[in-house]
Design a protein around this nucleic acid. Structure first.
Lengths: 163, 163
DNA sequence: CGGTAATCTTACGTTGACGTAAACCAGAGG
DNA sequence: CCTCTGGTTTACGTCAACGTAAGATTACCG
């Protein structure tokens, strides 16, 4: 077993990683990474001359974000795709503004992306609020049941002490 | 069109509802209700002599709870089944304590149910905390991007005013 | 330069959570 | 009694999100 193919100390580029390393670091399967690529959710930064996927650290961040949006927000991959797309547009804001000749259109696009991000915040806040209500209900039920159990327990203890 | 089969003003029993009424009230399909029954997640309180499902209001509450655990906690129906089972055990606490001769065993069961409920609370709290971190990150990113967009917009406005 | 581990493509399988269609009952109203 | 709406069982279909297996190819290591 030789070392992992995670380190590429070339002068020009960033650290690139093989699919196995990415899978290990993110906890998803290699199949899942290929599937994400298949549906256009995550395209590796580069490929080796032989055709092997080379992921950069941003790609790894994106995998983690995908999982976050899945587990925390309960989004499906299609919804996640649009969220990621909006975020990507915001992250390439400067270049888009410089390179584009059609600035009005670009502003509309970026406004839409910002609005999408805002809607995501709203969704997150709504979910937090709902979960807090859910938790409050749980707390109440827990306290009530525990009280009842303790009462019955005290009754039993008293009976045993008495007997 | 005669009236809905939701009202059964019989002296003895509670209000029972047909599967269509339950579906309408909870927003799930009839198929879903039958499926929940199929996997032992929700058995209707009663059946008509002809074999038709008769749900009580507790059943409706349970449907809503199932959806809550699905959408808020992201549980699958198997996980929900165990949660519901624990809650049911707690809800039948009194009868169980009375009817059971083996009180020690019953206490163990109830302790376990209480612990399950407590673990659910922990899970909810963890999810809330994670979502709050997620939201804080979103807020930060949103503010940052909005600032940048406004700066660029101001620059463009100044240029237009100047030219 | 050879061997072994990692990765590739292709393609079919699986699982959960239902949807949908067919053909047969149930029950209230007229 | 008939009809009409709502309900029943049975069974096959579907869709997302992967799992899994096969066989070929690439990459690194000594």
């Amino acid at each position: 077993m030789h070392a992992e193919g995670s380190d590429e100390t070339k002068e020009g580029g960033e650290q690139l990683h093989g699919i196995g390393a990415v899978a290990a670091q993110t906890g998803v399967s290699e199949r899942t990474l290929r599937y994400y690529e298949e549906i256009g959710l995550l395209t590796p930064r580069d490929h080796s001359p032989g055709g092997m996927r080379r992921y950069c650290s941003e790609d790894i961040d994106r995998v983690r974000r995908i999982r976050e949006l899945q587990t925390l927000m309960g989004f499906n991959l299609e919804e996640i795709r649009s969220v990621i797309a909006a975020e990507s547009r915001l992250n390439t804001l400067r270049e888009d503004f410089r390179s584009s000749s059609d600035s009005d259109h670009q502003r509309e696009v970026l406004d839409a992306a910002l609005q999408a991000l805002d809607e995501l915040r709203d969704a997150a806040r709504a979910k937090i609020a709902a979960l807090q209500g859910f938790l409050a209900d749980l707390d109440e039920r827990f306290a009530r049941h525990r009280r009842r159990l303790e009462e019955l327990q005290a009754a039993r203890d008293a009976k045993e002490e008495h007997g």
